[in-house]
Simulated scan of single mutants.
Amino acid sequence: MNWQNCKNILCIRPDNMGDLIMTAPAIRALKESFGAKITVLTSSMAKGIVNFIPEIDDAIIFDLPWVKTADIPDNEQFQQIVNVLKEKKFDAAVIFTVYSQNPLPTAMLAYLAGIPRVLAYCRENPYHLINNWVPDKEPYDFIKHQVRRDLDLVASVGAKTSNEDLHLEADDSLWMTVASKLTGIGVDVNKPWLIVHSGVSEKKRTYPIKKWAAAAKQLIEQGFQIILTGSTAEKHLTDELESEVGQGSFSAGGLFPLAEFICLVKHAPVMLSVNTGTVHIATAVGTPVVVLYAQTNPQHTPWNIPNRVLEFPVPAYLRSRNEVIMHVNKTVYSKPTALPTSADVVNAVNELISLRGLPAQQFHEIPNESQAIPAS
């Protein structure tokens, strides 16, 4: 099917904030190639980031019942969302997934809404549900970075972009407000500081607080102030970590709304974080990242930015029962991995500090199709 005349495209990315950020280059390719209006169907967890992604023209917020969400979806509203999509009269829909997700429930949503063209990866033959079908070979033949996976999907219908970087529109006019808040909690903004973001959306991604504290103390000894960021719900964690670290650390949990947080991250020389949406925010504003990376999905490392990825294992009792993820655990993550030490963390930060100002490059790269991760 020819997509050149598709001027009203629905992009479905019903996951978390970081997932939507990683899909933005593919959305950009659709917009640039077809001159289309782009509407995103995404979740309540990701809605906050929509206004910072310039390629998105409109958004529909709905928590789909086959995607993990904070609240139980309202099944009575499902028909309503079908009707909303019908009224929008989309020319085409693109379903973006990670390799462990089944696109067919989402494809049925597009089918019920009467969208004539539907593009997605799928393992089994979807017949009429996905009429622009790309057979999904991940993760059994190879694994691509999520950004590359999404870009390759839209490239199959002729959508390409010369700019494959992540990008968020940061409001630099907020810096004075951000700096004032930092000063208010005791930070000297004229002296070196770093961000440490330890909060996780899933318990299996947790890096031990004692090790966070040990690394933070060593960085403070080197002359850095440590700003402990987190959501309002994570303030108890940032307060606990501040207490554990002591002088030179500053709890900022819940202090910054999203726009201010993006501005803060943009001004940081380096961010130190677990693998969560904050990593992709940093990547999208050009801030180097050290990420304590739980061995969950290898597709989601920082993209096209100086970075260091320090992997650590997920306890057996917290591992997913999804068969696709279990395959990755048995292959990609089959070798035992020691928990990174505080020295490992500090060394990684220092390496990135020394590289600050050099051209960005990707230090931890997922092999592409020509550099396949073997299935066994």
Rank of each mutant, 00 (worst) to 15 (best):
A179C: 05
V274C: 14
I373F: 15
H145C: 06
L241Q: 09
F34N: 08
I305W: 05
V154C: 14
A343Q: 13
F250P: 02
K89V: 13
V84Q: 04
K7I: 08
D150H: 07
P288R: 02
P103R: 01
T276H: 07
L104V: 03
I185M: 09
L219A: 03
C11W: 04
I209H: 06
P315K: 09
K89S: 13
S43R: 07
S156T: 02
L64G: 01
P25K: 08
F312A: 04
Y317W: 02
V134N: 01
A268I: 07
I95T: 13
L153W: 09
I21T: 00
T276I: 07
V279K: 04
I227P: 09
S201E: 10
C6I: 03
R356S: 13
R356I: 12
E169F: 04
E369R: 15
F250K: 05
P139D: 10
L153E: 05
E76L: 11
F256K: 13
G246A: 06
P374N: 08
S231A: 15
I115W: 08
I95C: 10
Q146C: 01
K330R: 15
A268G: 03
P126H: 02
V289I: 05
P288G: 06
A338C: 13
V345H: 07
G158D: 00
D344E: 03
G114F: 11
Q146V: 02
G223E: 01
F78S: 01
T238P: 03
A216K: 01
A93K: 06
T296F: 04
E221F: 01
F224M: 11
I262E: 07
P298Y: 02
R13W: 03
F34K: 03
D136Q: 13
I95F: 06
E240N: 15
V98T: 15
A120S: 14
Q247H: 07
K89L: 07
A214V: 00
A36P: 04
D57E: 14
I72W: 09
V178C: 03
V67A: 12
V200W: 12
H197V: 06
V118I: 13
H128L: 08
V291R: 02
P298F: 04
K210N: 13
V147E: 08
Q218R: 10
I262A: 09
D63L: 02
Q77H: 08
V147A: 05
